[in-house]
Design a protein around this nucleic acid. Structure first.
Length: 137
DNA sequence: GCCAACGTTGGC
DNA sequence: GCCAACGTTGGC
């Protein structure tokens, strides 16, 4: 299983909304690198759900329940979306500040490529963040 | 509110 | 094909 991180601005789409909705279409990605990560996602892969701009912390875990297919909101027909289902919150959200300060996490794309909205997470990073957040890995 | 990073657009 | 201008993201 591979692991990922997806970003959302909470005033546009928050973790609480994701939980209330259950499964959602992760649409609107218009960056080619982010889209290539969406295409690499497989059923059952898990993603951290990160609040950008406000909050700036990882707040929960979602699961890939449908692999990449065309995003109908993209008129060019080039971009894809996946379906994500809320799995579990992080009992203790892990903040960007913590991540930057942690030598084991400071190489994350979240730090290195701050604008990338869909990014891979290594197994080590996944396990470490789950431990910090009090979630089962 | 500012600005750095980065992607896209369009003139040449 | 280069690069300046511009728009967007997202941290501070």
């Amino acid at each position: 299983m591979r692991h990922w991180l997806v970003k959302s601005e909470p005033f546009k789409w928050s973790w609480d909304q994701q939980v209330a909705a259950g499964t959602t279409h992760w649409d609107g990605v218009r960056n080619h690198l982010a889209a290539s990560h969406l295409r690499a996602m497989r059923l059952g892969d898990r993603c951290f759900f990160y609040h950008s701009n406000e909050g700036m912390e990882i707040v929960g875990i979602v699961e890939v329940v449908r692999e990449a297919y065309p995003d109908p909101s993209d008129e060019s027909g080039k971009f894809v979306m996946v379906d994500l289902r809320a799995l579990a919150p992080l009992p203790r959200p892990v903040t960007l500040k913590q991540i930057k300060a942690d030598p084991r996490l400071s190489d994350m794309a979240l730090v290195r490529m701050s604008r990338l909205s869909v990014q891979p997470v290594t197994d080590d990073e996944w396990a470490h963040i789950c431990a910090l957040g009090g979630a089962a890995a």
